[in-house]
Design a protein around this nucleic acid. Structure first.
Length: 292
DNA sequence: GCCCAGGGCTATA
DNA sequence: TATAGCCATGGG
């Protein structure tokens, strides 16, 4: 089954969003057709290819079984957070003078939300003390090694393996390590084992603090990784992942020596429901503008 | 060859 | 509670 349709968008930059380093998943595979990825829609495999032309997204869909376009559109709307009003964010940023410069630098940048919660958890663990290039490649390797493959006209695509598959690996099994996650392999395996007993969906329904405290009990998940999962996985908009870039840029913008505790409290009190998006914009600003 | 990467874990005071 | 050293490994 092949199908095409269009999604109207405003204030969206697909390429910027795709390569912004959010730990929900690696960037989708790029070709002349656009960006392609395997999505499970109603538990069924579908290859989705999207290309942006100004104010519209051209979507191509290939699936062995019949899948309603409206369901695919809903998935895409969710993954790129297309229903979020960026104008409101820009108004908020404009009303806080220290933050004004970041607006024009990242216009159209949106959340890149998880298509698979477990993939988001593993990606976030793998991203710790690791370059974006390396952890995204490692996740792609894990998909090819342990995921289920589906063939399409563009080639073969793999889903992210279910927790049970990684949970069944021995702690010293070399296969996960050789995917490129390094010493984090045991964290991933032990976290996978815990996740076979706890529902990620249920964690996502808890309030911010309860979900945070639960995630912190998983091996390999500290404060920063937990906030990434809360933001990019569960769309907790008040999460504020605090990494080295955010520390740098906050010190640069506000010229105050905050420790991590104070920075988190400051962000959540000052930014509220915009904290997550502001973190996204600050990260992009710091990383690309070469702020010291 | 050295240093760093969207940090977390562990031991020590 | 706070800080120090360690961790795999590819890229600059």
């Amino acid at each position: 089954m092949f199908r095409e349709f269009v999604i109207k968008v405003n204030e969206f930059n697909l390429e910027l969003t795709m390569y912004s380093g959010q730990t929900s998943q690696p960037p989708w595979s790029m070709s002349d057709e656009g960006y392609s990825e395997l999505l499970m829609v109603n538990e069924r495999p579908a290859l989705v290819t999207i290309k942006q032309l100004e104010g519209e997204l051209q979507v191509k869909l290939e699936a062995p079984e019949k899948i309603p376009s409206s369901h695919v559109k809903k998935k895409i709307d969710h993954i790129f957070d297309l229903n979020f009003d960026l104008e409101d964010l820009y108004d908020f940023l404009y009303s806080h003078p220290p933050l004004r410069p970041v607006i024009d630098y990242s216009r159209g940048l949106r959340l890149f939300l998880a298509k698979d919660l477990f993939e988001c958890v593993v990606s976030s663990i793998a991203s710790a003390n690791c370059s974006i290039k390396r952890w995204t490649r490692a996740i792609d390797h894990i998909k090819e090694s342990f995921g289920r493959g589906y063939s399409f006209s563009q080639g073969r695509f793999y889903n992210f393996p279910f927790p049970q598959i990684l949970a069944n690996l021995g702690l010293k099994d070399p296969r996960l390590r050789s995917s490129g996650v390094g010493y984090r392999d045991k964290y991933i395996i032990e976290t996978a084992r815990k996740i076979t007993r706890i529902s990620l969906k249920k964690i996502g329904k808890l309030d911010y603090d309860s979900a945070l405290n639960l995630l912190l009990e998983f091996p390999g998940i500290g404060p920063k990784v937990a906030d990434c999962i809360l933001l990019y996985g569960f769309r907790k908009l008040d999460a504020f992942p605090l990494d080295l870039w955010i520390r740098k840029i906050m010190r640069h913008i506000y010229n105050i020596k905050f420790d991590d505790r104070q920075l988190r409290d400051f962000a959540r009190e000052e930014f509220g429901e915009y904290a997550g998006y502001i973190q996204l914009y600050l990260f992009n600003y710091a990383r690309r503008a070469g702020i010291v």
